[in-house]
Design a protein around this nucleic acid. Structure first.
Lengths: 229, 229
DNA sequence: CCTCTCCATATTGTAGGACAAATAGCAGAG
DNA sequence: CTCTGCTATTTGTCCTACAATATGGAGAGG
């Protein structure tokens, strides 16, 4: 009784269930959204019976959804103890950033070397938002940031790399460190994005990699400097 | 009835089931072993009902095991079409090697910089087998190779990196390209391992990274040069 | 008064059966 | 020969039930 009821987003909204065969996917999406939007805070328990009621499905799909989220790294799962929303320690964040730097450096290099005219055109199109000069709030920035990094990896042309980067708890990290995103920080990030984009458009792999490394290393330093949530 | 029975490794051995709570893990291990040892060839179908009979468990654990293997990337899973043992295309292998190079380069760099005396001692101990001068067969080499690369990542001290590398279908790749491992190739690989180990022991990050890059790039070239299985 | 052991409860792990839905392969019509 | 429709296999989901385990509290003992 230490907790005043988990306070779920929608206690029992009708939740129009999707077509047959998409039940699990639906649950996964909902829960992922709740976790990344911090409607479910890190460390929160995910009890199967609660979820069966919330989504009006049986335990089977719920369990599968939890497994998938565990595979994505969004939740932790201990035998007989249930699932918890994952909480990243500063050390884990630091380690993940260290990996991300290498992965995205490779991506930037490959993107700068990409030859496909069509792909490059789509890249330019996808990153258009970063040239918008209006102020962004944290949420807008997170979306723009995700799209920008994804655009680079798409242009890079290494599908495995793109998949891997997406599955690397990057959203989780960003959600957890989202609080330090002051307007000044956001502005600096956007400027760095533009520098990276410029290097890629000019087909300068070294500059692109360097700019991306600088960008991520600054971000990592900031993220680690957030000991408490 | 177009198939003469999938010819499973052990059609219905007793399969002493482990303690409660370990059923899924048990199935996962068995199937993973079968896949990596190529007792289940790439493209083979994994039908749930067959597996329930083979392991004498219900569909629940089987489905969960398949999900976990899918998350590991060892099998592919399409809705209503079931699970197949994953088959890597040359392109995928190339892409994965490209990623692996970056990941392990980072690992080698970190390992060469590691300060922990105890960890270093354990590293030296773990890589002892690579200094054995006797001939290896392909299977022995694969085990030694896996242990060697794992030892580096352990010494590197970045747990996320180690986890990620292990879950990167590296074993699958090695199993799929295992056929090109002629004695001469093995010998060259072992020599390269020793060079990498030497650089790490001498705490020379640049040399360690360079040696590892060379090693993997040669391996990648060989792997891609294997169009057919 | 504090600590430790034991038990009741909540929750997960697994079984087994049932049915709907969707894919794939085959047969027959055009 | 190609296309259409059907059927069989397989998966997706649900339900119920029970075993096994962790958790937290009650009571005994120091």
């Amino acid at each position: 009784m230490v907790e005043p009821a988990p306070a779920f987003p929608q206690p029992d909204a009708p939740e129009a269930p999707p077509a047959h065969g998409a039940t699990v996917a639906h649950i996964v999406e909902r829960l992922r959204g709740d976790i990344l939007a911090r409607r479910l805070s890190p460390g929160a328990r995910l009890v199967e019976s609660d979820l069966t009621m919330r989504f009006a499905v049986s335990r089977g799909p719920v369990r599968e959804a939890l497994r998938r989220l565990a595979a994505e790294g969004l939740i932790e799962h201990a035998p007989h103890r249930g699932a918890l929303v994952r909480r990243l320690s500063p050390r884990e964040i630091q380690e993940l950033f260290q990996i991300r730097v290498e992965l995205e450096s490779l991506g930037a290099r490959l993107a700068a070397q990409a030859d496909d005219t069509d792909l490059r055109a789509r890249f330019v199109d996808a990153i258009r938002p970063i040239f918008d000069d209006s102020q962004r709030n944290a949420c807008e920035y997170l979306a723009e940031n995700a799209a920008f990094h994804d655009a680079i990896l798409t242009l890079a042309g290494n599908r495995q790399l793109r998949d891997l980067a997406m599955r690397l708890q990057l959203p989780l990290i960003m959600a957890q460190v989202g609080e330090v995103l002051t307007p000044k920080v956001l502005e600096a990030s956007v400027r760095e994005h533009r520098a990276i984009a410029a290097a890629i458009c000019e087909r300068d792999p070294r500059a692109a990699e360097a700019a991306l490394r600088a960008h991520l290393e600054r971000a990592a330093a900031m993220a680690i400097a957030t000991p408490e949530d």
